[in-house]
Write a protein that binds this DNA or RNA. Structure first.
Lengths: 264, 264
DNA sequence: TAATAAATGTCGTTT
DNA sequence: AAACGACGTTTATTA
């Protein structure tokens, strides 16, 4: 069976079907050394040694080696790779016992991933040009921006003073005053708020508790409260305001269109 | 430019190089309908609407559609996909304005991912056979097993009574008695133990606190304590025992070889 | 470098 | 179906 590469495409991309181990080896070596994206599909087994260790017995999988040193081993199921190596790994490709062995290791973390193929269905060596911008909306930062733009989302009369205020334990999402001028600490979560979120708010509260004469409020903003959070919140005298990322995204969308209207 | 498929391989796998949109469309439709793994490489843009929303401007990427309804969009960098859909998505492939459009949506979560290709470098439709077992070692479960096998890993004289004991808030990793017969609750973490882990142990402690005459101990087992955890632990009168997953893995390895010795 | 918080977290398990 | 906890979580941010 002969390996095949379409010439019209070979300037930048090489695709080999059912190549021999030797041919695949040459392609992978060439691809990783030139920092190409390399996709290998075939029958393989995987060993990982590092923070944990794992063994994956033989089967047909898709392996992706990226120019930045990421490595992924994907089975035919699941979003997550069964084995992987984050960016910064170094690839070592070799022929061992007539099999194609690819090792990805990270020196600092002393982690090694080894994939061994005894039968290769496809090797693609791809020079991908990708500079397209990526925009993500409705993150926690977006919720913060929405409240700052429209403070009534929190409650009537709320006036923000500072966002991302640095304090000892970290950063206060929003600090402000309520309609009665009471200092108000706001902690925002885009997911149901856990006990951990309550503790986080409590830590920020404690920064201002050295002055017992001044009343302060702590408000946890999230789409909902997780199970255990309700009790802890009440015990600590903190408050909860339900607010979803979707509503915030809408507010920001209106803000953007308004800005455009004003601009023209 | 003619699309090409190696016949020798086409029983189970089809690989097309620089196919037209029409040819790619037929291949993707055929692949997803037969629950094959489909890999598409080409110039595309991506829109996502769901828990968040995102836009990715044109560029060359690798898209993987899996038989279980997972979808991945990988740029040439990073371990994580830039866009994705977890298992259970339904794929809808179409030609729109001479482009190849692939939509993956999950009805329950009301999430949609749409990838549109205007130029296709490769389409691979793969019938991958993968039933190999996956073994992960040195997990939290392994640490539990190691302590149960060699209780002195926790402390001299410790005697386990029950593992995974179900109580109101969840499951106690290990319950036992110390050398003085004092009831001891053990919570295990394979990573540096956070305040959340301390709270988890505390929740289990409270189950037994209704009898104030009986002394009980709570021990948090982990390779180390995270920053905030120390203070909370002390405040709650709980204890910490440093134990690494590696040491546990060694103990289990010795156990296995011993079992083997006994067997032969 | 180490710690902290966020994530479209994902994934398995149990209620 | 919903919730809880583990994860080789990864990643970005900041001290």
């Amino acid at each position: 069976m002969e390996a095949h590469a379409t010439k019209a495409n070979s300037r930048r991309n090489t695709i080999l079907e059912t190549p021999t181990v030797e041919v695949a080896y040459q392609a992978v070596i060439g691809g990783t050394s030139k920092h190409r994206t390399v996709i290998i599909v075939g029958n393989c087994w995987v060993d990982y040694q590092g923070r944990a260790s794992s063994t994956l017995e033989p089967g047909e999988r898709t392996v992706i080696l990226k120019p930045d040193g990421s490595a992924l081993v994907h089975r035919p199921t699941n979003y997550a790779p069964v084995n992987w190596q984050p960016p910064g790994s170094i690839f070592r490709t070799a022929i061992k016992d007539d099999n194609l062995s690819i090792r990805a290791f990270r020196r600092k973390e002393n982690e090694t991933l080894e994939v061994t193929f005894d039968r290769i269905i496809m090797v693609a060596v791809l020079d991908l040009r990708d500079s397209g911008a990526f925009y993500l909306h409705a993150s926690e930062k977006d919720m913060q921006a929405a409240i700052l733009f429209q403070p009534a989302l929190l409650e009537e009369g709320f006036r923000p003073i500072k966002a991302e205020k640095p304090v000892e334990p970290g950063f206060i999402d929003i600090m402000g005053v309520d309609k009665d001028n009471v200092l108000t600490i706001v902690e925002i979560k885009r997911n149901p708020a856990t006990t951990e979120a309550v503790l986080q708010l409590q830590k920020y509260m404690e920064v201002f508790k050295n002055d017992p004469t001044r009343r302060i409020r702590g408000i946890l903003v999230a789409p909902e409260l997780a199970r255990g959070a309700q009790g802890l919140l009440a015990k600590l005298g903190l408050e909860f305001k339900a607010l979803s990322p979707e509503v915030c995204a809408d507010v920001l969308k209106r803000k953007r269109s308004k800005t455009l209207t004003e601009f023209f």
